[in-house]
Simulated assay, not measured.
Amino acid sequence: MTARVEHTDVGAYALGLLDEEDREAFEAHLLLCGGCRAELSDLAGVASALNGIGPVHDEPAPAPGPAIDLVRRKRSADRRSRRGTFVIGMAAAVTLVAGGLTVGTQLSGGATVQVAQEHSGHLNHLGPAEQFYADGRPIEGKGIDGVTGGLVVESKGWGTHAALKLAGVKGPLECELVSVGRSGERRVMTGWSVPPAGYGVPGSPDPLYMHGGSATPLKEIDHFEVVTSAGKRLLTVRV
């Protein structure tokens, strides 16, 4: 992928199969490609689902090991095939039962499985953005017209990664999360459409969780904004 970044490499990136040079190139690509960011959000749960799960024993296997290791070994053996094709196909096909765990995720292609503990009976409904937000230290924002929300941010080698929680907003709207540097430079981190029902409002109580990335280093960011396509500022989060 060092010759050129391919959109299909999102699967390999989600599973941590890219080497360092390719990973850095793809992370730079993510800043400019909303489609890959959206697909990465869908695929990000695959890696955590595969980690720690033993192989399927439809055929004799050499020795038990994490399923993610099987993917990596297969990945190495298939380097001449189109990058990412095997990874995404493997993730879409995974429906494992090992140690009482049924594994799966929602992929962009429509293959759907769920993560469920057989013994507890509980489903894990947290998407990657919501999980990152729940595990972090949210910075509450100041909204208008009943809008509430916040961000969990982290510094990355390529810039700043953020997870947004947004509630109290009704659609239809088109919105963007923007980082505003101390110099005044504005960078769009991610964008989305709010359906008429909205998020975090009566009749549609679940808030929206989104990932975003900015090339601006965290130490150089003054604040973040959620703005509409018409330029209305719904939420401001200062860091």
Rank of each mutant, 00 (worst) to 15 (best):
H57R: 12
D58T: 10
E59F: 12
A61D: 03
A61C: 05
A61H: 08
A61I: 15
P64F: 01
P66I: 00
P66R: 02
A67P: 00
I68Q: 09
D69Q: 11
V71A: 12
V71S: 02
R73H: 10
R75T: 07
R75H: 15
S76K: 11
D78N: 12
R79I: 05
R80H: 11
S81W: 07
S81E: 14
S81R: 14
R82G: 03
G84L: 03
G84Q: 04
F86A: 09
F86M: 15
F86T: 08
I88Q: 12
I88R: 14
I88F: 02
A91W: 02
V94H: 07
L96S: 11
L96N: 13
A98H: 14
G100I: 09
L101W: 13
T102G: 08
V103L: 12
G104Q: 10
G104E: 10
T105I: 05
Q106T: 13
L107K: 05
L107N: 10
L107M: 14
G109C: 13
G109M: 09
G110M: 06
V113Q: 15
V115A: 13
V115H: 11
V115T: 13
A116M: 15
S120P: 06
N124D: 15
L126S: 15
G127M: 07
A129H: 09
E130Y: 09
E130N: 09
Q131D: 15
Q131G: 10
F132Y: 15
G136S: 03
R137N: 14
P138S: 05
P138K: 04
I139K: 12
D145M: 06
D145S: 13
G146H: 09
G146V: 06
G146R: 11
G146D: 10
G146I: 06
V147C: 09
G150E: 07
V152A: 05
V152T: 11
V153Y: 03
E154N: 08
E154F: 00
S155I: 00
S155C: 01
S155T: 12
K156F: 00
K156C: 09
G157M: 03
W158E: 13
G159I: 06
T160P: 01
A163N: 06
L164D: 06
A167T: 03
V169T: 11
V169N: 03
V169E: 04
G171R: 08
P172E: 07
L173W: 00
C175S: 02
C175N: 04
C175Q: 12
E176D: 04
E176L: 01
E176C: 02
E176M: 08
L177S: 00
V178W: 01
S179E: 01
S179C: 01
S179N: 01
V180F: 00
G181I: 01
R182T: 08
S183R: 05
M189L: 08
T190A: 11
T190L: 00
G191F: 03
G191T: 07
G191A: 14
S193E: 14
P196E: 11
